[in-house]
């Protein structure tokens, strides 16, 4: 999480996401329109690290997560692991890839088959990927339960007989069953009470220390992101508009959107809630993205030249990138004046 930790992770990336674009075509008012959910996504994931995709709803982060987990095929671009594309023809190949990338779903109610018991949930992936040895299955199921701190007395329960926290742990255990290299965490704590949220985060950290699994964390909860992620990718309307090490992005945001996102997070001090760095209006429709900077219609410091063209991601300093052509306005005195008023 610190700069030091970042330097120690100089390992080669295990997954490379290159120019991934996902468009959907929809029919609205009788006309076929194209919806760009994810636009030219580009990042890498190394073993044992946690990358967070943050953004408000509609930013394309869930679509990106599904592409990474190979549940959606990108329209353009490639996702490769160790140099080989993840999507290959044939069922066997797809199975192997699912073994490498798993996903913990946001909604533990909808993602567990209501008819399966805890034991069946955990045995299924073990059977499919590792075979049918009964003794081995039992041992692994018990191990997995211990890994996520679930009691063995729950083995014959069905999802409706479990608490929200227990269900989410079961979702994590199921993902861990196949010993994946990457786990996509889709809003892992969104469905949990505050009291169980902290336990879940601590569990995720512990699991990562033991297994060296990489996390792709998808969340709009900045507190969760801050406590888990090594690097942050801020998404807006399908594009990454800022990326960098978590602490640097949070303490020194270089994009008006990121700054607004951070300041919009509820804080203890009441004053912070009245920040001028507030985005007015709604996120535009992904069927009709602005041609210049994506934030032009909401940015508090928008300039005439912002409309000219889509700003590219440029390095602010080492591995901290931002897609804003006027970062100097982020700390402009006029803004401080607005904050004070």
């Amino acid at each position: 999480m610190t700069v030091n930790a970042d330097i120690s992770r100089t390992r080669l990336p295990i997954m490379r996401v290159q120019n991934v674009t996902k468009t959907f075509s929809t029919i609205s008012a009788g006309r076929r329109t194209h919806l760009t959910a994810v636009d030219q996504l580009d990042f890498t994931i190394a073993a044992g690290e946690t990358i967070a995709l943050v953004g408000e709803s509609g930013s394309g982060k869930s679509t990106a997560a599904k592409c990474v987990a190979d549940l959606l095929a990108p329209t353009e671009g490639t996702i490769s692991m160790d140099g080989a594309p993840t999507i290959r023809p044939g069922r066997r190949a797809r199975r192997r890839d699912h073994r490498r990338v798993q996903l913990v779903f946001q909604d533990p109610n909808g993602s567990l088959d209501p008819r399966q018991t805890v034991r069946q949930v955990l045995e299924e992936p073990l059977r499919n990927f590792f075979g049918n040895n009964r003794g081995e299955l039992r041992r692994r199921v018990r191990e997995l339960l211990a890994d996520v701190e679930l009691d063995e007395s729950l083995l014959n329960r069905r999802p409706r007989e479990l608490s929200g926290g227990q269900k989410q742990r079961l979702g994590l255990a199921r993902a861990l069953a196949v010993e994946p290299e990457i786990i996509v965490l889709d809003e892992p704590t969104a469905s949990l009470d505050v009291s169980t949220r902290g336990q879940m985060l601590a569990l995720l950290e512990r699991v990562q220390r033991h297994t060296d699994v990489a996390y792709l964390l998808v969340s709009h909860d900045l507190a969760v992101v801050q406590s888990l992620a090594d690097r942050v990718l801020v998404m807006y309307l399908g594009s990454i508009i800022e990326s960098g090490p978590t602490d640097r992005v949070f303490t020194n945001p270089q994009h008006p959107y990121t700054k607004a996102l951070i300041e919009a997070a509820p804080k203890m001090e009441y004053r912070a809630l009245r920040s001028a760095w507030r985005l007015d209006g709604e996120i535009p429709s992904p069927t009709d993205r602005p041609s210049g900077c994506l934030l032009t219609n909401r940015c508090p410091v928008v300039q005439p030249d912002c409309h000219a063209q889509r700003p590219p991601l440029v390095a602010v300093d080492a591995d901290h990138l931002s897609a804003c052509i006027h970062p100097e306005l982020l700390s402009a005195p006029s803004m401080d004046a607005r904050t004070a008023s």
């Binding site: 987990a69 549940l71 798993q102 567990l112 499919n128 199921r174």
Partner: peptide, 26 residues
């Protein structure tokens, strides 16, 4: 379109076993 259908795919089920082991019984 339920998430447990996606989850079943991730758990290494082929399309037919997603259908007959998870969706149909429900």
């Amino acid at each position: 379109s339920m998430e447990y259908a996606d989850a079943a795919v991730l758990m290494g089920n082929g399309r037919l076993s997603v259908l007959f082991k998870h969706l149909l019984p429900n």
